[in-house]
């Protein structure tokens, strides 16, 4: 198992927003989904995940509610707000630009 990649500051927000854009999810599921989607490259620990979720909620991009989870227990599910949906688009575009810029530099040198 290769060492998990440290996430660039701010990209975690985008990953979270993108992940819950599909459906409301609880924190564990978000972490799992990010890991699966990135083929185990990106591993998000609770110490980064929950403060990020709470921050997004405080910013009004994400809202939460308690639901019964697939294991029949109560869990806090996060979903996007209208403002969050806009933010996903903006953040994604920003990321595309950033990564394109970085890769063009990486490739030329």
């Amino acid at each position: 198992m290769t060492k998990p990649v440290d996430l660039v500051q701010g990209t975690l927000d985008l990953l979270i927003l993108k992940t819950i854009a599909l459906e409301p999810m609880h924190g564990w599921a978000i972490a799992q989904r990010i890991r699966q989607m990135s083929d185990d490259v990106l591993q998000v620990g609770q110490s980064a995940l929950y403060p990020a979720l709470h921050k997004l909620e405080r910013q009004g991009w994400v809202t939460s509610e308690w639901r019964t989870s697939e294991t029949n227990r109560r869990a806090r599910y996060y979903s996007l707000t209208e403002a969050g949906r806009d933010a996903v688009v903006d953040e994604a575009a920003r990321w595309e630009r950033l990564s394109a810029a970085i890769s063009s530099i990486v490739r030329t040198t």
Binding site: E57, R58, Q59, G60, W61, V62, T63, T81, E82, A83, D86
Partner: peptide
């Protein structure tokens, strides 16, 4: 939109 964002944050 801005107001709704503020609304969720304040919640």
């Amino acid at each position: 939109k801005t107001m709704s964002r503020w609304f969720y944050g304040m919640r």
